[in-house]
């Protein structure tokens, strides 16, 4: 091939880039439809918690004071040592430590209102929660912890918030004197999406065809070099 045959003009370059962007956009659009097919959006109401106030409340507080995770993280000094009342979903694991156990309780909208995102596909932000040390007896009664396949148990706890908990090497957390399971949680699931099966099959068939061509089409393969 001569050099002139390999030359490209600026117009060809720009056209090529536009074509690549167009293909990428088409792929994203198709993927978006795959998500849409499996959406069963629950109605969106008001947020579970009020918008976080920038200012921390003045101490002393009436105890027990009902708090959110955001309250505790934004105003750790204010609530340090206070008896707090907190509700959240147990997620990921229950870690037993002798007479007590650690659970991470989330109080975001997935935890208290909408359920796991896997179930409803409505994105409302990240997770927020605090670690809570609960009596081992209550921990034993937790059947489900939140993960992709389960909505975790909802616990309501009352206890002392410690900004730098000495029992946890200085981590923040609630040492619960009382803990109650108000909802045991449940398994969650979704039917297998047929459109995804078809899409995966088509894409893989095309990939196999391309692999076959790449392996067997001698017209485009370079000659093997002697070494």
């Amino acid at each position: 091939m001569t050099r002139s045959a390999n030359q490209i003009t600026p117009l060809q370059t720009i056209t090529g880039m536009v074509a690549i962007i167009a293909v990428a956009t088409v792929i994203v659009t198709v993927l978006g439809r795959l998500i849409d097919r499996s959406e069963q959006r629950p109605p969106l109401g008001a947020p579970a918690q009020d918008e976080q106030d920038d200012t921390c409340p003045d101490a002393p507080l009436p105890e027990p004071v009902t708090v959110s995770a955001a309250d505790l993280i934004e105003c750790p000094d204010t609530f340090d040592g206070a008896t707090v009342h907190y509700t959240g979903e147990a997620v990921r694991a229950v870690l037993h430590r002798g007479a007590r156990a650690w659970v991470h309780l989330n109080d975001d909208r997935y935890a208290l209102e909408l359920g796991p995102l896997y179930e409803h596909r409505t994105t409302v932000g990240g997770n927020s929660g605090v670690p809570v040390s609960i009596p081992a007896g209550v921990a034993d009664d937790i059947t489900y912890v939140g993960d992709a396949r389960h909505r975790g148990a909802i616990l309501t706890v009352t206890g002392e918030f410690r900004r730098a908990n000495p029992d946890d090497g200085g981590g923040p957390g609630i040492h619960a004197d009382t803990a109650r399971i108000t909802d045991p949680g449940r398994p969650v699931g979704r039917p297998v999406d047929g459109a995804r099966i078809v899409t995966a099959a088509v894409v893989f068939a095309a990939a196999l065809a391309a692999a076959f061509l790449a392996h067997n089409d001698t017209s485009t393969r370079p000659p093997t070099r002697r070494r």
């Binding site: 297998v192 999406d193 995804r196 995966a200 894409v203 990939a207 391309a210």
Partner: peptide, 14 residues
């Protein structure tokens, strides 16, 4: 469903 998502991603890449 997530396994299928991964297969679609792998298929497009391949």
């Amino acid at each position: 469903n997530d396994a299928l998502g991964l297969l679609i991603g792998a298929g497009v890449s391949l």
